[in-house]
């Protein structure tokens, strides 16, 4: 991403705030990236470059860490994130049919973002609320004991409510 014109803007302010809280040594790298992602929604290229310049940690090392852990995103996400749980309990009760229904409803595949930028659809290994299986979360709110029909309703209702706001 081009960073011309941003030099004097407020764009880097959150970056400075985050960096000021750490010594900037290698053991801080994961917490720094986590905080930066909280601030920017993802890890923009110009932020990674600046992080490397300021800490002396090679870009290759930063990217090595950022691509190793599934939490980090190098591309911006949609306004809302839907996570489909693929834990064992969800799997045996039908996570796959839930995912198929959502993909069909939104017209995207797992890992993609809708064209209007409203929804990003992700799969997660386990959300840890197995008794609610099969379960999804939309922006950290859990919806459990789903069926393909129910999950279509959940998404339609969510869209309606989001539009109403």
């Amino acid at each position: 991403m081009c960073n011309c014109g941003k030099e004097n803007s407020k764009y880097f302010e959150p970056f400075e705030t985050v960096l000021s809280e750490f010594k900037g040594e290698e053991p801080d790298l994961i917490p720094i990236l986590q905080r930066l992602q909280d601030a920017y929604g993802y890890l923009p290229e110009d932020i990674i470059r600046r992080l490397s310049e300021r800490t002396g940690i090679f870009i290759s090392r930063i990217l090595g860490v950022a691509t190793f852990y599934s939490q980090f995103k190098l591309k911006p996400s949609g306004k809302h994130t839907i996570k489909v749980c693929f834990g064992t309990a969800c799997h045996v009760i039908g996570a796959e049919t839930i995912a198929e229904a959502i993909c069909d409803e939104l017209g995207i595949a797992l890992g993609e973002t809708t064209e209007d930028g409203e929804f990003t659809l992700e799969s997660v290994a386990c959300l840890g609320c197995c008794s609610l299986a099969p379960v999804i979360t939309i922006d950290d709110e859990a919806y459990g004991r789903l069926t393909p029909t129910k999950v279509r309703e959940v998404i339609r209702n969510f869209k309606k409510e989001a539009q109403a706001v």
Binding site: P27, L33, F68, Y69, S70
Partner: peptide, 21 residues
């Protein structure tokens, strides 16, 4: 930060050290 392998103790140590787990 989301890596199953970090449950293995030496990978967990690498992760605390700020490296790939």
């Amino acid at each position: 930060a989301g890596a199953f392998v970090c449950g293995e103790e030496t990978a967990l140590i690498a992760s605390i050290e700020g490296q790939r787990g």
